[in-house]
Design a protein around this nucleic acid. Sequence first.
DNA 1: GTGAAAGCGCTAACAT
DNA 2: ATGTTAGCGCTTTCAC
Lengths: 370, 370
Amino acid sequence: MIEIAAVTRTRDGHEVAQARSTTIKDVAAAAGVGIATVSRVFSGTGSVSAATRERVLAAARELDYRPSALGRGLKLRRSGGIGLIVPDVTDPFCAEVLAGVLACARTLGEHVIVDAAHGDPAREAEILDRLVEQRVDGVIALPAGEAADWRAAARVCSSVVFADRVLPGLPEIPSILADDAGGVRSLVEYLVGLGHRRVGFLGAAAPGGSPGVRERAFRGTLAQLGVPLDEDLVVAARPARDAAYAAAAGLLQRRADVTAVLAAGHLLGEAAVLVARELDLRVPADVSIAMVDDVAWAELCDPPLTAVARPARDIGYRACELLLRDRARRGRGGPVLLPTELVVRGSCAALRVSRSSGRSAGRPSPRHGL
Amino acid sequence: MIEIAAVTRTRDGHEVAQARSTTIKDVAAAAGVGIATVSRVFSGTGSVSAATRERVLAAARELDYRPSALGRGLKLRRSGGIGLIVPDVTDPFCAEVLAGVLACARTLGEHVIVDAAHGDPAREAEILDRLVEQRVDGVIALPAGEAADWRAAARVCSSVVFADRVLPGLPEIPSILADDAGGVRSLVEYLVGLGHRRVGFLGAAAPGGSPGVRERAFRGTLAQLGVPLDEDLVVAARPARDAAYAAAAGLLQRRADVTAVLAAGHLLGEAAVLVARELDLRVPADVSIAMVDDVAWAELCDPPLTAVARPARDIGYRACELLLRDRARRGRGGPVLLPTELVVRGSCAALRVSRSSGRSAGRPSPRHGL
DNA sequence: GTGAAAGCGCTAACAT
DNA sequence: ATGTTAGCGCTTTCAC
């Protein structure tokens, strides 16, 4: 039942009925009990006789009563929800993390406030601020920048868990990560095993400008395998489509002698595929391409792309679990590393000593035609 | 400043410091003013002298004060957030809608609670319930089912706007839709214009089993163009990868004579591409493929897929706008239709009378080899 | 087992 | 311009 508390007339002469939603008080009155009893029934605390419980439930149903999370939250000083900050919800990896968080939050009865920072530290801080105002029970983030903000946040209010990536200088914040180094290593080993020696690396430019785990793993594995590395085979791009494309084009045009490209992310992989097509390079006959992140289109590509699958959904799920369930265990033993998996498809071929299309192993011949 | 209110020892002997966060009261005391003044400073209501405002702000900064949305929400009887219910956050279309909603909500200072119903009406109702408990200012949904739940929700609490799709029998709920009928029509006209006469239709099975806008548009346009339609060229699949694949395989194997496939969604398009590859059908030489929804991989495909782009982000943005900004204008004039755009790429070819690979125009020859 | 009462942190009259 | 006060809807002692 809806009770009309007031009918106000707005400026444009439109009538608006303001329905006061039924409260615990109404239910108590209707059931002939005290409000405490109603509270006990709905919050599951304390004990109520089966008879009264039934009466209360009936009254509540009759009045269409919904307990207000606002009232409860104020009393309990927590909202019953968590916050998730990602760079971009339309990124398939982020979306998968979100799905994992949602799945876990659901089992724990929490809701999830999501927002996208788009790599902007200021925006990220803003979102974080708002989440604190909302008194979320915790926040999960794929952080973009500004360790200071996060340090403050972790101190002042709720708990924080990083997912997929960490910020330098914040070891006290627990994190769930994919074993990116392992993933890149397996990719490099695979390519080198196929005979490739001049492998281009398309990496993401870290905010700080430091190499990043993936690049370090690339260099490290190559060194370990005794493959010398030309410095200009390593390229870093901002995490945006245009930048990725530019980086891929630059690499493949400048170094016509690369026989394989390792893209350290799906955006970079996409760029590599597009550029190769534009330059009329056959994959894998002319260049082999492999990437980190086994997104949906990897299989739709022609040829399907070899990739390292990172457990995005698990990352989200476990981050949420860590945040809400294992509060005690948190922070012990450093970041949690989840394994990756090499998915071999058709985009990488064994290197033959001499190949067609003029891409001989000798000196680089600059390419044109983009 | 953080004040330690209590130090409790948990069962596992772990000490936990409970910091009582600073409230409006603390700030008032520190600034030597009444709490109402502090409230006025932070809520922007009423008037405060510049001097006191400064004092308050300074005190707040000193104490690291964050206004509690819980307290404010209780008083205002609204949370300052909205809910978004999608079938699946990892679906690129849904993700894009979400991005649009986030963008708009941000400009209006609202946060967004997201959840995925996975096409399950019961789950959807559950989520809706929770959102009502949270006292969200409104709900945007890509609804799955159960008109009754939605009718109740729209009545009892906050306002509802449907996005991308509607539920039969709920004309009173405003909606923002893509012009799917127009999109399908342009696709059919394009294919028929290329000379195709036996066009297969891969559609989504509607919950109710009714044809759906896309299928009706398909049939209608064909009829309008005077192209007869074999009933078994029209296939409906549940919105899941396996079902889509099965449907596509069934269609292409059963009807070796189809010269073009219109996939009414990106999942179905994906299935068509995969099945065509599995059956060794060259695209577009043997079959032309076109789909609704211009997702990212359409361009990465080889050949790139012709598709109808639907303005997912706009849909989200405008749904949010309609929900929060244009409350008054809402519901007038029925659903808002946003235009689609045909993006022609390389996956459809003009039909020649006789083609290679034994796919003659004559009687269907059952295919094998999946 | 149940009720009365005291807040949780905030805003909005209403006074001054 | 600013302080006082009364709740918003709920949980939780504390009596009974």
